[in-house]
Amino acid sequence: MSLIGFLALFLFVACADPVHDAAVDALGGEAPGVPPGPDHRPGQPCLTCHGGQGPASFEMAFGGTVFAYLASNQPAGGATIHLLDGAQHTFTTQTNCAGNFWVPKPAFEPTYPVQAAVQWASATEVMRTEMRLNGDCNSCHVQPETGASPGHTWILAPSTPVPEVSCR
C-alpha cells in the first residue's frame, strides 16, 4: 500500500462515525408519497439528520412532532410550542399539518436546561422534565409508552375532541 493510500484509509476511518451512520440507517427510507421536507418522517428523531452531523444540511436546534392523542398517530397541526431556556429566553413556534415543528439552529441557541409546553386551542400540556442535552424531542418521545419513553408527544385526553385549528 502506498503512503497516500494508507493516509486516505486512515482519514476515512478517523472521520467516519459508525454510531451516527447506524442511527441514520436505522431510520429507514422515506414514507411513500412524502418527499424529504417539512412533512416528512413525523415521530422520528429530527436531530439524527438535522443535528449538524448530516446528512441533512438544514440544522435544527429543536425538532419534534406533536400528536393529538397518545394512542393514535393523528397529528396536532397548528399547535404552539413554547420553549423557555435557563437564561429565561423564550421561543415560540408552531407545528405544521404533519404535526412537525422545528427551530432552526441560528434562530434560538438556548442555555440549557430548557422547558417546553404545547398549546393546542384550549389544551395545554407542560413537559414535566427539563431538556438538558439537546432539542431532539422525538429521541425520548418514542412510541410506544414504556419504562424508557413517555410515548410520543401528545396533548389531548382520549375523550377530548380535536379542535379546529388551521395549519400549513
Binding site: 427539563e130 438538558r132 439537546n134 424508557a148
Partner: peptide
Amino acid sequence: YSCGNLACHGAAGRNLLLYGVEGRRL
C-alpha cells in the same frame, strides 16, 4: 429531576444510571 431524565442519566449505558418518575423506570 435534574440528572435522571431520559436523555441524560436516565439513558441506557450511563455509568451513573438513575431511575424514577422523571426518567427511566426500573
